[in-house]
Design a protein around this nucleic acid. Structure first.
Length: 472
RNA sequence: GCGGGUGUAGUACAACGGUUAGUAUGCGAGUUUUCCAAACUCGAGACGGGAGUUCGAUUCUCCCCACCCGCACCA
C-alpha cells in the first residue's frame, strides 16, 4: 500500500491542469474524466513510450487501429452479447439473480422461496449501445421513452415505445441496426488478423498492437481514473505456434517488467499474481495479473493472458473464413495461439502519478513535487528570469527559452510571482529542470552561464548556455 | 441498483428567512524583489437545477441532478 493519499493526487491533478472531472461545468458525469494541458501531455508521453518500446523497437510487432464501431457479429462471436443482454431480476431477500424470462413463477424466488421480492428486470449489459441508420423520430416524439433491444435473429433493433402504461410495438427502418461501442480493443485486432496476414505476410511469431478507447457501462465507476466508463487501452495480441506459448509467455513477463521500470514504478510496488484457474476466463490457460500498490490498495495495473486459439476459432466459426496461418516453409497450416498483454492507459497514468507524488520540507514548509521520469514529464524544462523588471535580463532569458524550445519542444516560460514560487509551481507539475537566467548570466566571468535547478534535490549548478542541452 | 452522506469562488471554509453573501489561499494585472510560495495596490471569481411555503428563500419543505462513502457488479 502506498502512503500517498488518492485525494491529494486528485486535488493536484485538478489544481494544476492534469485531469478534471468530465462535464465539470454541468456538475459532472460519473465515470468520465477530461484531460487538461499537462494531463494530455503526460498521457501521450506514456502512450508514445509504449508504442516505442513494443512496436518501433521490437521485432515482429506491428500496429493496427480498428474502428470503435464494429459489426454486431463481432460481439456475438466473442460472447459479449449473449452473456450480457439478459434481463435479470434480483431477489431483495437472498440477492440471487435470475433471468426474468426463465422464471416459472415470476413472483417467487426459486432459491429462498420468498414471494414478491423481485425488483424491476434490468438488462445487465455493460456495453453502450447506439444506432446506425435512420431512426424515425416522429414515432418517438412527445416525451415517450424508447426502449430498444437487440433481436439476435434479425440482427436488427426492435424497439417499442412506452407511453403511460401502454406498450406500442413498432419497427425501425430496415437499414437501422443496433451497434455497440467496443467494450475492449482486443477484438479489433482479432478481426483484422486475416487482413494483416493476407496483405502483409508477417513471420510468425508476430504481434499486433493497438491503442484506443473502449467503453463499459460500469454500474459504479470508482477511484478516480482507475475504473471509468470510457477508458483507453493498449493491447497486444501476440500470435504464436501452440507449442511455443509457454516460453513466449515467460518472455512477456520480462518485457512487462521492463515497461514498469520505464514508467518509473519501483520494482517493490509491482507484484505478479498468478491467477488461479477458478478466477480465470474459461478460455485462458494461464493468466498473470500485474498489480501495483496504488493509494487505493494493491490493484491490477495490467494483465497478461494466454488466450489459446479461442478468439480466432470463434471468428472462424462465425465468419466461415479460415484463420489458419500458412508457414512459409511449407509446414502444416494451423490456427495460431495468442498471448495477450493488456495495458490500461489510465491505470498506468495513475500508477505513475502515485509513484511520483512526493512531499518534503523546505525551510519549514511543505513542498509537493512529482518525481516524474524526465522522459514522461509534461514539461521537461522551465526557463525563468530571476526577476522580471529588468528588461535586459528578461530578454536574455527569452533568448535561452527560444533556443531550448526549438531543440526540446516541451519547454515552458515562467515569469509570474517570484522565483521561489515558480520553483514550487514547477515542482508540482513535475518539471525536472528549471533554468534560471540571473545577473551573472549577463556580465563578469560568469557571463553566458545560467543555473540549472534539479527538481528532486533542489540543488543548482551553473552551466554555460551552449552546454545546456547536454546537461539536461 | 440499494443504503447513507454532501452540494456556497479553482481549493478549503464561514454566515444569514431581509442592504452589496464573508475569510484564507490560489488566480490575473501592477509596484517591488539579485534564488526557493516575502510585501503592497488593484482586479476577476460562488449559493447545482426546478417547484412549493413566504411580503421576501442561498437558508425551510418536496422533486430532480450531480458528486462522495459503503454494499453489490467488474465478461
Amino acid at each position: 500500500m502506498s502512503d500517498v493519499k488518492l485525494e491529494d493526487i486528485v486535488s493536484l491533478a485538478k489544481r494544476r491542469g492534469f485531469i478534471y472531472p468530465g462535464s465539470d461545468v454541468y456538475g459532472g458525469l460519473a465515470g468520465t474524466w477530461d484531460y487538461g494541458p499537462l494531463g494530455v501531455a503526460l498521457k501521450r508521453n506514456i502512450m508514445n513510450l509504449w508504442w516505442k518500446m513494443f512496436v518501433d523497437e521490437a521485432d515482429n510487432m506491428y500496429g493496427v487501429d480498428a474502428a470503435i464501431l464494429m459489426n454486431q457479429k463481432v460481439w456475438q462471436a466473442s460472447g459479449h452479447v449473449d452473456t450480457f443482454t439478459d434481463p435479470l431480476v434480483e431477489c431483495s431477500n437472498c440477492h440471487n439473480r435470475f433471468r426474468a424470462d426463465k422464471l416459472d413463477n415470476p413472483d417467487k424466488c426459486p432459491v429462498c422461496g420468498k414471494e414478491h421480492t423481485f425488483g424491476e428486470p434490468r438488462a445487465f449489459n455493460m456495453m453502450f449501445k447506439t444506432y446506425i441508420g435512420p431512426v424515425d423520430e416522429t414515432k418517438v416524439a412527445g416525451g415517450a421513452t424508447m426502449i430498444s433491444d437487440l433481436n439476435t435473429q434479425t440482427g436488427k433493433a426492435d424497439s417499442r415505445i412506452t407511453e403511460t402504461n401502454e406498450t406500442v410495438k413498432y419497427s425501425l427502418s430496415d437499414d437501422t441496426s443496433l451497434v455497440y461501442l467496443r467494450p475492449e480493443t482486443a477484438q479489433g485486432i482479432f478481426t483484422n488478423f486475416k487482413n494483416v496476414v493476407d496483405s502483409f505476410y508477417p513471420d510468425l511469431p508476430f504481434g499486433l498492437a493497438q491503442q484506443g478507447k473502449a467503453f463499459r457501462n460500469e454500474i459504479s465507476p470508482r477511484d478516480f481514473i482507475f475504473r471509468s466508463r470510457e477508458f483507453e487501452q493498449m493491447e497486444i495480441e501476440y500470435f504464436v505456434h501452440p507449442d511455443q506459448w509457454e516460453t513466449v509467455f515467460e518472455d512477456w513477463i520480462k518485457r512487462v517488467h521492463l515497461w514498469c521500470d520505464a514508467l518509473g514504478l519501483p520494482a517493490e510496488s509491482v507484484h505478479e499474481l498468478e491467477v488461479p484457474e477458478a478466477d480465470r476466463a474459461h478460455y485462458s490457460k494461464r493468466t498473470v495479473d500485474f498489480e501495483f500498490d496504488f493509494p487505493i490498495g494493491r490493484e491490477e495495473l495490467l494483465g497478461l493472458a494466454y488466450r489459446t486459439d479461442f478468439d480466432l476459432m470463434n471468428i472462424q466459426r462465425a465468419s466461415g473464413k479460415s484463420m489458419e496461418y500458412r508457414p512459409k516453409d511449407g509446414s502444416k497450416p494451423f490456427v495460431p495461439h495468442v498471448i495477450e498483454p493488456s495495458f490500461g492507459v489510465e491505470r498506468a497514468l495513475m500508477a505513475v502519478l502515485s509513484a511520483a507524488y512526493k512531499e518534503d520540507e523546505q525551510n519549514g514548509e511543505k513542498r509537493i513535487y512529482l518525481a516524474l521520469p524526465a522522459h514522461l514529464a509534461p514539461v521537461k524544462v522551465a526557463v525563468l528570469p530571476l526577476v522580471k523588471n529588468k528588461p535586459e535580463l528578461v530578454a536574455k532569458a527569452r533568448e535561452v527559452y527560444d533556443m531550448l524550445k526549438k531543440e526540446i519542444g516541451n519547454v515552458m516560460w515562467v515569469d509570474t510571482g517570484n522565483i521561489g514560487k515558480n520553483y514550487r509551481k514547477m515542482d508540482e507539475i513535475g518539471t525536472p529542470y528549471c533554468v534560471t537566467v540571473d545577473f551573472e548570466t549577463l556580465e563578469g566571468d560568469t557571463a553566458g552561464t545560467v543555473t540549472v535547478r534539479n527538481r528532486d534535490t533542489t540543488e543548482q549548478t551553473r552551466v554555460k548556455i551552449e552546454d545546456l542541452i547536454e546537461s539536461i
